[in-house]
């Protein structure tokens, strides 16, 4: 386990209040550790200043790998290793190769992207998540502020969170 840090958690009831609060808190100079929500909130990544996910690039790269492997496999087997005339077709009948190439493109793109997602998002069956509040997966949005990484004192940050609309502010050591 990593060493523990002290966090202040602001609990928010409503996603629109939360979005405004993120902007207010960031403008007042507080660094937000992360915001946790029970469902995807639109626009939260912009408010937090996150970059757009590059997983689509990963999916594309895995996809073309799939296409290439499928074509290499089919041309290699039917055209080079053991050429045979089947139904009067060419040794390398390109139209016949379309279905398998398509399927392997989708297969590799999907599995490659999801695998990458699990790795970058650190999702694994034996994963031990940092749970700031059990209500995150139910009905509350939680904004966590790492006290060690902020210069402002605890009381001041707590006041900023409350002013921006947090219904409660708790202290948590993880």
């Amino acid at each position: 386990m990593a060493e523990t840090s002290n966090y202040l958690t602001g609990v928010f009831e409503d996603e629109d209040v939360l979005l405004d609060a993120i902007k207010k808190v960031r403008n007042s100079g507080v660094k937000i550790h992360e915001v946790y929500s029970p469902f995807p909130v639109h626009g939260i990544e912009d408010a937090l200043g996150y970059r757009r996910s590059r997983l689509s690039i990963a999916a594309f790269l895995f996809g073309i790998t799939g296409t290439s492997l499928a074509l290499i496999m089919q041309i290699g087997m039917m055209g080079i290793d053991w050429p045979m005339i089947i139904g009067g077709k060419d040794y390398i009948p390109v139209p016949s190769f379309i279905p398998v190439s398509f399927e392997l493109t989708v297969l590799l793109a999907a599995f490659g992207m999801v695998g990458t997602f699990f790795v970058v998002a650190n999702l694994k069956p034996w994963g031990k998540p940092k749970i700031f509040d059990l209500r995150i997966t139910d009905d509350k949005h939680v904004m966590a502020v790492d006290l060690g990484k902020n210069n402002l004192d605890e009381g001041k940050i707590s006041q900023i969170l409350k002013d921006s609309g947090a219904s409660e502010v708790n202290k948590k050591t993880l």
């Binding site: 757009r52 996910s53 689509s56 997966t137």
Partner: peptide, 22 residues
Amino acid sequence: LSFGWDGAARTWSRYETVALIL
């Protein structure tokens, strides 16, 4: 089964990209 899901905004953002591309 939940793979250590914590509901972080960064994960949700990636998750939505994954869902859309899938």
